[in-house]
Design a binder for these strands. Structure first.
Lengths: 244, 244
DNA sequence: CGGGCACTTGATGTGATTCAACGCTTGTGG
DNA sequence: CCACAAGCGTTGAATCACATCAAGTGCCCG
């Protein structure tokens, strides 16, 4: 039986029965390919669609009145995204592809159906979404109360840890695949200042860089400097009742 | 029949049947009174409890290594809070009372039970929680990309709008009940600078102040200056299936 | 070969912080 | 009932972190 990308992800945290897997597979029946840079959803678009990101890397963001951009979240394969579409007929945030990507769109009605027919599965989905919420508050605290250097380091650690979940052979070296401007828009900084912070992290021997590739030289120290916590590592869904 | 505080709140957005109301009432069987300033949950506390805030105003926050505090969220009567306790055995954020308050603690197992036995009700709870998530991203964008003045204005508007939902007679004048330091910790600013921003808003005739009371003199202009959107006003739960 | 985009670096500007001082109110114990 | 301490608000001056402006480099791709 084919297994859904999202089921694999959820399966990292909780065991699923065949019926549950089958339900998730329905969410990935359609799929759409995106080239790097393409906008999937524009802010304020009218849409009741949600997505499973199947491959590639994406971001959600908002554009403010003065034209500046704030990246709200980076999205990785296996993520269920655009949950706000459940309650907002007009998208509160835009979404765009950071690399070539494949997404599976499905209507919110399908998620509602899962909620009603497979409550345990829905509970697991909601639980996983809570981890996203906590990561959001981590970033909020980062923007409000930490230095530019810490914020940049935090993005590096976050991206590395998400990527490593998808490729367990990954070590301390990886290619973030983000421009410095994108890192800036995620951290509330200018691209110029991101550049200086990267340089500083390099000078302090916390990271090394080589043509887009980043190597974490002292992960423990970097984690401390960034005030970073891997929220997926501490996730506990063991209290969920076993599947029927 | 007694009606739960949380059912009233949810009832603003979706109609509930008696069975659903009864289930929610169970969540408010116990209650605890808190004096202003008291910490209900400390960061990292081991606990599987969630809460309904029954009366008063509270905040959730984190304290960083350097001792600085970031307020993550203000909480108002009717809010269900500490949902992260679903998946984190150790509280990722602390909670404290900003005024005298009453909370109803209940175990995450009770919410899990609701999820399994009353899926429609749980779906409604999750939907409402999505609005919180979007407010969080609004604040993230505010911290990353807007001026100090906008952030302070945004807090004023947010608190006023939440309070007005509880007292429909409230006009443009209200008592936030927050110190300037608290506003600063919510906006990523120092108390000193919050003071200056309030003064500036006053000089620009956007607000008036008198011994703790704030009056919004030009709400439209203030809303624009703050980049503020009332996310509860745009909430749409009409797609929920009717209750059985 | 040429144009564009990302990256890099220096000089300068500025919004917010930090430090310091003082007044006002509130609550508390003598 | 008063004296005093503590917390909050206010204001000015100096400083700092990050933004802005500007110029130049390397590289990929058409």
């Amino acid at each position: 039986m084919t297994v859904s990308r999202f089921a694999e992800r959820l399966g990292e945290f909780v065991s699923l029965c065949d019926k549950e897997r089958a339900a998730l597979l329905q969410l990935e029946e359609r799929q759409r390919t995106l080239r790097r840079g393409v906008t999937l959803v524009r802010e304020n678009d009218s849409s009741t669609e949600l997505f499973i990101l199947k491959s590639g890397m994406m971001m959600s963001f908002v554009i403010l009145d003065d034209g500046s951009r704030q990246i709200l979240r980076f999205m990785f394969p296996g993520d269920m995204v655009a949950l706000p579409s459940l309650v907002y007929p007009n998208a509160p945030e835009a979404m765009a592809a950071l690399s070539d990507a494949v997404v599976c769109p499905f209507d919110r009605a399908m998620l509602a159906q899962i909620a009603l027919e497979q409550p345990r599965l829905f509970l697991a989905i909601v639980a996983l979404d809570q981890a996203e919420r906590v990561m959001l508050t981590d970033r909020l605290a980062g923007l409000g109360r930490t230095s530019a250097k810490a914020r940049v380091a935090s993005v590096l650690l976050h991206v590395r840890n998400r990527m490593r979940r998808l490729d367990l052979t990954m070590g301390n070296s990886f290619v973030p695949g983000l421009t410095q401007e994108e890192i800036g828009d995620a951290t509330g900084l200018t691209a110029v200042h991101v550049n200086r912070m990267l340089r500083q992290l390099e000078e302090e021997q916390l990271i090394a860089r080589d043509s887009g590739r980043v190597t974490l030289l002292d992960e423990a120290k970097l984690t401390r400097a960034a005030n970073y916590v891997d929220r997926l590592a501490a996730l506990d869904l063991s209290w969920l009742p076993p599947s029927s």
